[in-house]
């Protein structure tokens, strides 16, 4: 079975701070890591490969140094990795990112299952997986928490819904996003990690993927971030006055204003 896992490289710490001198955003230092929710997708991919004697290919859209995360994924047990990198991809939104991933998967050709994490810890959209499914024109199931049966033609799995769980059968090839209930990711081996550091990572740019640069990146993305700002913090330490009724009244109003409920 040919499995493809899409991962994202994110800041290792997501604490955002403002530089007091320059007011610039500092996003938690230079350390970067595999987006933690993607580790569940990677683990599940590797388990499928081990069971079916298949192959796991890892993809990421990112800058040149995202290859470290791909190497790490190989260290965990992936067989192959492709970095999708081009200055034209910079500023891509979820739509453009899924387009790039879809082109890469089409270029790889043969695949049975694509796994994505539930969402990234920086952007927090959870949109790339489903968008990728549609861009590839294959079936898609979100929030999978257990794979029950994996056949040549189809997969049976549990997904989390708003009200509980649903058992779903999907024909292959297809795309799924997984949640952290699905497994406990392994700890990689030292030999694996060291060997992976030497792994050659294939890099595909826009031209090699047959992508018109105008359709991706900032220019090609349907959505654009027009402004970034810090949320208004709730005022600190306010004692609500009055009788219980009016205190409750005030509280609900405050919570609403600060969008806590």
């Amino acid at each position: 079975m040919n499995v493809i896992v899409c991962i994202k490289q994110v800041p290792a710490k997501i604490k955002i701070e403002i530089d007091p001198k320059t007011s610039a955003l500092a996003s938690g230092g230079v350390d970067r890591a595999i987006n933690p929710p993607d580790l569940y997708a990677l683990e599940e991919g590797i388990r499928i490969k081990e069971k079916t004697k298949g192959k796991v290919t890892v993809l990421t859209v990112g800058p040149a140094k995202a290859d470290e995360s791909l190497k790490e994924a190989i260290g965990y047990g992936a067989d192959d990795a492709v970095l999708l990198s081009d200055p034209a991809f910079e500023g891509s939104d979820t739509w453009a990112t899924s387009l790039v991933l879809a082109k890469a998967i089409r270029k790889i050709g043969q695949f049975d299952l694509v796994l994505c994490g539930k969402q990234s810890i920086d952007g927090e959209t959870g949109q790339v997986g489903p968008m990728l499914g549609e861009a590839l024109g294959v079936p898609f199931v979100s929030l999978v928490n257990r794979i029950d049966e994996l056949g040549q033609e189809s997969i049976k799995m549990m997904r989390m819904s708003d009200e509980g769980h649903q058992l779903i059968e999907m024909t292959l090839p297809g795309v799924i996003t997984v949640v952290k209930e699905i497994n406990v990711p392994r700890i990689p081996s030292l030999r694996g990690l060291m060997a992976a550091k030497k792994a050659a990572i294939t890099v595909w740019n826009a031209r090699e993927l047959g992508i018109d640069p105008a359709t991706v990146g900032m220019a090609g993305s349907p959505t654009r971030v027009s402004r970034v700002f810090f949320p208004q913090r709730a005022s600190q330490g306010e004692m609500l006055q009055g009788d219980p009724e009016s205190q409750v009244e005030q509280l609900v109003e405050r919570l609403r204003q600060t969008r806590a409920i």
Partner: peptide, 11 residues
Amino acid sequence: KEMASSDLLRV
């Protein structure tokens, strides 16, 4: 066992 599978016992 976990240390073994991550090669720590080989060090």
